Simulated assay, not measured.
Amino acid sequence: MAGSKQEVAVAAARGGSTASKPKASAKVAIPQLEWNQVRPAPVILVSGTETFLAERAIRQLRDLLKAEDPSLEVADIDAASYAPGELLSIASPSLFAEPRLIRIAAVEKCSDALIEDAIAYLGYPADDTYVVLRHGGGVRGKKLLEAVRAASGVAIEIVCTELKRDSDKHEFASAEFRAAGKRVSPGAVRALVSAFSDDLAELSAACAQLASDSADEITEVTVQRYYAGRVETNAFAVADSALAGNYGESLGLLRHALASGADPVPIVAAFAMKLRTMAKVLGTRGGSGQLAGQLGMAPWQIDRARRDLSGWTGEGLGRSIQVLAETDESVKGAGRDPVFALERMISIVSARGTL
């Protein structure tokens, strides 16, 4: 029966997961702040994989300290080539007692000497001295990170994690315009994020350019005028529109993508990723953080799949996964008209599997 096939399709897409739950992280005794909440402290750990946000946070800290005292001295240390005693030497009081900012880069590549000296420094931080430890991720330096995170009253942590969700990138872009005192339409923000979703630095630069060049409200038309070559349709834009039930829009996006030279295979792959993730999440209970280890997914992926599942049924999802498999075969050579196969898949997915 068709119903049983659809149940099999959903079950196959879900697959089995033997992933264990993530271990609880060590207790953190210091404040953990976002990149735009940076403030002075004797020791500031700037952690996370998002280099652009980390660099901006460190730059904002420097500007803040400079504004408080223009005589601020800035010193840089490379953690990978650190020499024993270097931190203590730079942090020692000077003749004129100027405040100091010591920036230690690439702590994820640090020498054993830095680990020892920095842990010792936590017990006796120098007056009017601010030490920034930039750790970009990985296990190297774990002992130092644990010591910093336990140094209550001495250290703070600025967490700069990668902005993966579209909503986070939208908020980032909107905040850039607010900081510049400019009004921006939601459509303009969506267009910018679509054009520069892979590079936060480029997204920030684009926001800055539009803010400086535009006197009135920044709209989607403004973005198109400046970045027409970058505002392109991608496979996930087609899939997102179809999953939301927007048949006309998704069909238009598909035809624009194909006219721009997009290959049908990655478009099908984008649908496959979305539908299989939805199948894994369908019917689950509990918070996304709790389910992440069980399903082998990031919490934000679970949250996104749950939003995508709005209006869907298990039967409709199973039907769509069946059509997806047929379309995959067609675009890879089994069918005579891959474009027709894509359009058929979009019509069924847009109807949430009810056609």
Rank of each mutant, 00 (worst) to 15 (best):
M1F: 05
V8F: 10
A13Y: 04
R14Q: 13
S17E: 06
T18Q: 11
T18D: 11
T18H: 08
P22K: 05
V28I: 15
L33V: 03
R39N: 09
V46N: 10
T49W: 02
E50K: 05
R56D: 13
R62E: 13
D76A: 10
A80N: 10
S81P: 00
G85Q: 01
L87T: 05
E108D: 15
K109T: 09
A113F: 05
I119M: 12
L122H: 02
Y124V: 08
D128M: 04
L133G: 03
A151M: 07
E157Y: 01
A173M: 00
A175F: 00
E176V: 01
A180P: 00
A180W: 01
R183Y: 00
S197C: 10
A206E: 01
A211Y: 08
S214H: 09
S214N: 10
T219Y: 01
E220L: 11
E220D: 14
V221N: 10
V223I: 06
Q224R: 14
A239D: 00
N246V: 01
H256N: 13
F271L: 04
K274A: 15
K280Q: 15
V281I: 13
G289H: 06
Q294E: 14
Q294N: 07
A305H: 11
L309W: 02
G311K: 05
T313W: 03
G314C: 06
E315V: 08
L317N: 12
Q322G: 06
Q322K: 08
Q322L: 14
D328S: 04
D328P: 02
V331A: 13
P338I: 02
V349G: 05
A351R: 14
T354Q: 14
